[in-house]
Design a protein around this nucleic acid. Structure first.
Lengths: 403, 403
DNA sequence: ATTACTTTTTCCAATGGATTTATTAACTAG
DNA sequence: CTAGTTAATAAATCCATTGGAAAAAGTAAT
């Protein structure tokens, strides 16, 4: 990341980025209004807008209300003036999709994976994308590929540093994909991408400090600081799952005691349920297990909560109580505007969210909980793909002094 | 904070800031080397440097080594080409000092306060500065005043939001000082200022993610993210003292249980010592108290530790153990390059630092502790004044797209 | 309908930064 | 002492923004 120096090209890029973002975020809007709102001369706006029209990025869409003179010509952003390809690597499938420049999904494909790991998985991903791209008519308007993956990711270098489940260690994904497809490629951690999507295209457009927590097989965290993904020194920031909430709590394989993750992730919940069911505790879940003869799923747990099952409810309350300690700690440290809860355990689980909201407001500093929102994610199953798009589009549209 | 638009003035400011910072951080350096290293044309560098010489910001200082042609003329930053006034509001005194443009203290005065609070304290501070300024010969080269205060501070608006001990609530300090002295005034929280000073003028020049923890009457925290002070949404970020380390721990007046602060601040340490001394536990501290007939001081505690006193050592170990949980949590969340420990309890207390280092390396994720440094602060008692200077100088020298 | 006034958009010359291309200055090596 | 090299400056050129004028397209009142 080299710092740019000032020249005419730089001021043009800066101004065009301001103008385009104005149209994207506040369009339809007239040339003269853009000029007034940003204190840029009308001449400059005209030149920039006409260039955008030539490139197909924006279009004129009729006229606005006159305030006593010539009617303004309204300009709007053209989200289908280009597209990008989002790729999400998960434990169960490779998801590939085409999205427009507003992160709306146009086409989507799922390539299930079964026990494919390491280099094989990467090769499978490349072939999946190849197949997907093969069905597209025209690649000239493709602005790039964006990949998200779980685990520790070096976004700047485009390398997947570490993912034990998928057996990925130091995979130079960015280089690999760029040489294969000749398209600019981005890579980021899945939760990082999702939290950025919440700011850019979700319910938190006006927030700049967000914390995103997912509860699944593990506890994932993404943090937005001043509107940008916060990575820390090694890209390892946001390990909320391994913050300790109890000095002599459950020993974790990381070496610490009382790591939050071990109290709230699905394996912990499952084993608690199974333990109680095994010793004969009467519960709706026991009935479900006997009926269906399938292994216990998070879905069953959530169904039981909704139906007021005492066992499920009490376990949920315990999870909420632990989680609230960790979330209150994050709030006291980061002072975010919003905390977003995602992942199978939290999604479609209003009782859990409720419990957390009340517990957190007791534990976190009251100055910091004023106006604080704790809610579920804006996007359901497509959060990862929209997140990937957000990462690419942020780079595409946001002016930066770094080259 | 309005975003700037691109014009000729902007590119000049950007380039001059790059050139001046090059001289500040890598000087003495020749014009041609600046041009090469930053890919700015020699003509531009010459024009900028000559302007700086005219302003007295830099000087030519002889010639460098020739590599086969004309010898380069070396340019160095002129730290005494201007000065600023730092003010630190503490519980015991108003500290006022004159510092040069490299944050070196030139003159310093202490104005002790006894039971002066609220508006009276502000008035006392203003008069103290007036007295200090009265003794200065020439104010034309003064670039501004920078104030640090403990408590919750809105740096952008220049308002002291809340400080219960000094009875300061919503004091518009910036406006107050600017109208009184006609000098551009800055305001920030004391620990925020100190952590910035560590990066700008201390041992962490090359770090961009720092955490600074002070242990005194309370637990203060300052966080540097990507080289800038991290404030969060309300400016309330970094409340490490109120993160919980134990679900059912000591109840805190903030409403939470197990707040770290209550385990490690001086009042907690003092009451533990007194408790043991009162029940007759033999200790060096008991002897000191009987000899001097004065109340217990942190200094006595540290002396006892150094002399291997078992009571002091065991209490210190307990404090280190609790503190390590909190610090490990911060490391897992922020992934900093360095953690700095300050305040009376940590300064000049190598045993404590040692204990914390080993405990943290066990508790924090090992990927994140690789290369991590835990150390004491670079500046002793003047950390607050140098910090204030760092805040002002950062604004003076660092180019920003925000006006 | 006509006229006076507004607002939006565009054209054009002027501005003022940076860069490019000489030119001068100052030194090294043979 | 001369050829070659590097550093610093000067003059000419480049180019994105700007401000003012002009054109385009309206409104409102006579």
């Amino acid at each position: 990341m080299q710092r740019r120096t000032g020249d005419l090209k730089l001021i043009q890029e800066l101004n065009r980025s301001i103008i385009l973002n104005m149209i994207r975020e506040h369009g339809p809007i007239s040339r003269s209004e853009i000029a007034k709102k940003n204190k840029i001369s009308p001449t400059t706006v005209t030149a920039a807008v006409n260039e955008f029209i030539r490139e197909g990025l924006v279009s004129e869409v009729g006229t606005g209300k006159s305030s006593g003179g010539r009617k303004p010509i309204l300009i709007r952003f053209n989200p289908d003036g280009g597209f990008l390809i989002s790729v999400s690597v998960t434990n169960s499938a490779i998801k590939v999709a085409e999205l427009n420049l507003q992160a709306a999904i146009r086409k989507k494909d799922l390539f299930p994976v079964h026990d494919v790991k390491g280099d094989e998985l990467i090769e499978f991903t490349l072939r999946s994308i190849e197949e997907f791209i093969g069905r597209l008519s025209d690649l000239t308007k493709c602005v790039g590929i964006s990949i998200t993956a779980p685990g520790i990711v070096d976004a700047a270098k485009g390398v997947i540093r570490y993912n034990s489940k998928l057996d990925l260690i130091n995979v130079p994904a960015k280089t690999l994909f760029e040489s294969r497809f000749g398209l600019k490629t981005y890579l980021d951690n899945d939760v990082n991408a999702m939290v950025l999507a919440e700011k850019k295209y979700g319910k938190s457009i006006h927030s700049t400090n967000l914390v995103y927590v997912t509860i699944d097989e593990g506890l994932g965290t993404g943090i937005l600081v001043n509107g940008s993904i916060f990575r820390g020194h090694h890209g390892g920031a946001g390990e909320l799952g391994h913050t300790s909430i109890s000095p002599d709590g459950i020993p974790c394989e990381c070496g610490n005691n009382g790591c939050l993750e071990n109290y709230v992730h699905w394996p912990a919940i499952r084993s608690k349920i199974e333990q109680q069911v095994n010793i004969g505790y009467p519960s709706l879940i026991r009935d479900l297990l006997e009926q269906e003869q399938t292994p216990l799923t998070p879905q069953m747990f959530k169904t039981a909560i909704k139906q007021g099952d005492p066992l499920a409810t009490s376990i949920m309350e315990e999870v909420a109580s632990y989680l609230s300690i960790g979330i209150a700690n994050v709030i006291n440290l980061f002072n975010p505007e919003t905390v977003i809860l995602g992942g199978v355990i939290a999604e479609d689980n209003p009782q859990l969210i409720n419990q957390i909201q009340t517990a957190v407001s007791k534990r976190a500093l009251h100055i910091l909980t004023e106006g604080l929102e704790i809610r579920t994610s804006s996007f359901a199953e497509d959060a990862d793909l929209i997140g990937a798009a957000a990462v690419l589009l942020q780079d595409l549209f946001q002016f930066s002094l770094h080259a």
